[in-house]
């Protein structure tokens, strides 16, 4: 464990807590894409298949349970909690996210480190996570004004993988034979997808204006 990875995990945890806070306290999921949340459930479900078979550390297992539990409960809230579901704009959140999964599955079957069930599922979860934010970014373009909590959620979610990139650089230079191109490239693509959001988020913060992505 290094400081970059810890910062990444804490930023990721913060993003999830911000979203849960928004949904649980103000009972609203306005501006939040259910499609992205569903994709994250699949990302964690396929990423943590080994949660009961391989033990790395208490921290590792605890964080896996937190990410699994929070992503499932966010989807549950948005789908089945009456008050929250009412605030979900289904008309705008129309990204066909199941179509995102197909290329990720195919790519995972083609490009992986080892052709085993676990490894292919794990690689699939990496590819899927890289594009999971797309429905949310599309929804952002459509809904003109987004509230601060949603903006913070996306900012933290994008930032965590940025810290992971620093972690991979650190590990590359400090651990011999630590080379994982698949992880690195999908992590880089994932972070780059947030580039324009980060830009407009920074502008809105600098000019102290509401965050608005150009249509």
């Amino acid at each position: 464990m290094n400081i970059f990875r810890l910062a990444g995990d804490m930023t990721h945890l913060a993003s999830v807590l911000v979203l849960l806070l928004k949904i649980h306290t103000i009972k609203s999921c306005a501006g939040v894409s259910l499609k992205t949340q569903e994709l994250y459930v699949i990302v964690f479900a396929t990423r943590y298949l080994d949660i009961f078979t391989s033990f790395v550390s208490i921290y590792n297992s605890l964080m896996k349970l937190i990410f699994l539990g929070s992503s499932f409960s966010i989807v549950w809230y948005m789908r089945y909690h009456k008050a929250v579901h009412r605030t979900y704009d289904r008309e705008q959140d129309t990204f066909r996210h199941w179509f995102l999964m197909l290329p990720c599955i195919l790519l995972a079957l083609l490009i992986h480190e080892k052709f085993t069930f676990f490894e292919v599922m794990w690689t699939f979860s990496l590819y899927l996570e890289a594009v999971a934010i797309l429905p949310q970014l599309v929804l952002l373009q459509r809904t003109r004004n987004i509230d601060n909590l949603t903006g913070q959620y996306i900012f933290l979610l994008g930032g965590y993988r940025g810290f992971y990139i620093l972690n991979w650089i650190y590990r590359y230079f400090t651990e011999p034979h630590y080379v994982h191109w698949i992880t690195w490239i999908s992590g880089l693509v994932q972070t780059l997808l947030y580039a324009d959001f980060f830009y407009y988020y920074f502008l809105s913060w600098k000019n102290n204006k509401k965050l608005q992505l150009p249509a």
């Binding site: 990721h12 490894e119 794990w122």
Partner: peptide, 10 residues
Amino acid sequence: EEHAETKDEL
């Protein structure tokens, strides 16, 4: 034989 390196990252 080369052990499958356990995934230590989240």
